[in-house]
């Protein structure tokens, strides 16, 4: 309402969380604008959940400050809690023995919703996540996707201006995940500020205007998906589809001059090896030499994608 509250600032400055010598988050500075859909992208163990939990007032920073809508998440925790929704992935976090309606009802009470509007509001959020009509069923029998949508509904109950999603599509089947993503992007259209963590490249790419890549507790890059791609625009990627490439051969690939990173993915029985390098002119030839005696289905060069940028960033390339 006042000028002060109009800037939404999230500054997680120089945090240090030490536990068992684990520094989960090591100095993150971030500012997310109001109405933005921001992606925090990083591999498992990068410190995404730790960061989100600090923002949600569930975890204190070892040092640094966390502000949400100008409010301090440490000292004004209760004020912050009123204004945020917290949604995490995974199939826990709901009362299995209760119906979807009762799960939401409990949280409606905890968020002190207007008792006269409670029923209607629960209906609305269930509707918005496409769960209307089945609210009397026990959560026990719900699929992962249904649970995730119920999680989402819970995060929306009190209509918070800021929402935090921690890997919301983890373990959800592709169709369900797509619906969850649609719901999240719909929130932005309704003016919500959203911070989303994910380890899926394409998810961040398709949803977020801005992304920060987090690796080992530090932001290693941030910007729009396009910015991140341009960081690797001087590279090319050689992709090889082959059968039976051993570890020693991969190790030797990594040693080749100009090679930034080598990653392997298994596709059916074949391996797809992506080799990123700054100098591709002689690379294909050198790779073929290394791969003598291996059955190579296909070899080709392509432009780097956001995924390659991400791989390069988190592997320190």
């Amino acid at each position: 309402m006042r000028g002060l509250h109009r800037t939404y600032r999230t500054t997680v400055g120089t945090l240090r969380r030490r536990r068992l010598e684990v520094e989960a988050v090591r100095g993150i500075d971030l500012e997310i604008g109001r109405g933005e859909l921001f992606g925090l992208l990083g591999p498992n163990g990068a410190g995404k959940t730790t960061t989100i939990r600090m923002l949600c007032t569930l975890l204190l920073p070892t040092s640094g400050t966390v502000r949400v809508l100008g409010l301090d998440a440490v000292t004004q925790a209760r004020e912050v809690r009123r204004r945020i929704g917290y949604v995490f992935g995974g199939d826990r976090g709901l009362y299995d023995r209760l119906s979807a309606y009762d799960n939401l009802r409990y949280f409606a009470e905890l968020y002190a919703l207007d008792p006269r509007r409670m029923r209607a509001r629960i209906g609305e959020v269930l509707e918005s996540v496409g769960r209307a009509g089945r609210e009397k069923e026990r959560v026990e029998g719900f699929s992962r996707g249904m649970r995730q949508r119920l999680h989402l509904a819970r995060g929306l109950l009190h209509d918070p201006p800021v929402l935090f999603f921690d890997e919301p599509t983890i373990g959800v089947d592709p169709v369900g995940a797509r619906e969850v993503r649609q719901l999240i992007s719909g929130l932005q259209e309704r003016g919500k500020t959203v911070l989303l963590t994910t380890h899926y490249m394409f998810e961040a790419d398709s949803l977020c205007q801005r992304i920060a890549v987090i690796s080992r507790g530090r932001i290693v890059a941030s910007g729009s998906p396009r910015d991140l791609k341009s960081a690797v625009s001087d590279r090319t990627v050689v992709e090889i589809e082959a059968y039976g490439i051993g570890e020693p051969a991969l190790a030797r690939m990594r040693q080749l001059p100009g090679v930034e990173s080598v990653t392997v993915e298994n596709k059916d029985q074949a391996q797809v090896v992506s080799v990123q390098s700054r100098d591709s002119v002689q690379l294909t030839g050198r790779l073929m030499e290394l791969l003598q005696g291996v059955r190579v289905e296909r070899i080709g060069t392509r432009e780097p994608t956001l995924e390659d940028a991400y791989v390069a960033l988190v592997t320190g390339g």
Binding site: R53, L58, R82, G93, L94, Y95, L110
Partner: peptide
């Protein structure tokens, strides 16, 4: 077991 403590503690209740 249900991991519902975090969501509860995240409310202003």
């Amino acid at each position: 077991q249900f991991q519902t403590l975090s969501p509860i503690l995240a409310t202003p209740s």
